[in-house]
Amino acid sequence: MMRKIAGLTDTARLKINVFPATVLVFVILYALGFSGILPANVMRYLLQIFLYIALGEAWNLMSGFAGMTSLGQQLYVGLAGYAAAILTGIYMQPLPTVLPAAALVCVIAAIPVSAILFRMQGMYFAVATWVAAEAAEKLFLNWKFVGQGSGMTIRLSPYPSVGVIYLLALTVCMLAVLTVYRITRSRLGMGLLAMRDDPVAAASIGLNLTRTRLTVYLLAALISGLAGSVFFLNKGMIYPESGFSISWTVSVVFVCIIGGAGTVAGPVIGAVIYVLLREYLAHYPGWSNIMLGAITLLVIFFFPEGIAGALKKKKRIN
């Protein structure tokens, strides 16, 4: 009992320390970005890490915290990428308009999609999210307005430098981490955990399941959309196959499983490992997926709660 209380005290102390530390890290990263002292290559690594953290947090919010396992978050990555391409290429909109508009498109699209998806649960929900993303890919493949399979180019003049994209990615990452952090410590967060562990019991004590699920789904769409638009801003082009590819979800699942699903820190740890490994394995053609798969298996076997989960157990870090 005493040990338990001591543990709680430790947790409470660490809770206070982690938040300002996180904010301090973001301040330092902003300062580095604005100062211009970071080499372009370092910024390229960091911005990829930031975006995978954001995507990971969005997926984690749905799958790790709310128990709504999704295989179709690429729907919003692709939609946001296309929104950015259409707004810049056809309507000649400037950068400050593009990102919020792309995220808004995702949220608006998520409303009718959720109405269909929420009729399903568990495995059926997961498969349905994937089907929705596949359907969107087919739609864009055959839509002349967006160039069909030829894809679209994001046209901005002057094109934002890697420094600007770094700052955008950092902002998206910060929004994602702080939003998920706040949620997990709110009434909504407790509701999510209750819903994940036992939806019937959660509903019986007054939790509005539909509203909770919708809130989470729209938030995940918003964060994925913001991350997706910056991803494609960095790439410069979007094709239906690249925007709506299942590989987005595969990457994000890797990020969350390695880092630890159901924890805020999990996607941060997972994204750092994923990006560094992927960049390193670029020197060894064909080995990338084999290595990533092997590491995932090892972590699932030996650290089923991911690295963050294992550390949390070991050090009682919250």
Binding site: I295, L298, F301, F302
Partner: peptide
């Protein structure tokens, strides 16, 4: 075994970091 996997992961990550530069 867990410790071995953890050490291996750290080595792989460290290798990635050095190789990236």
């Amino acid at each position: 075994m867990k410790r071995f996997v953890a050490v291996m992961l750290i080595i792989v990550l460290a290798l990635s970091l050095t190789a990236c530069g």
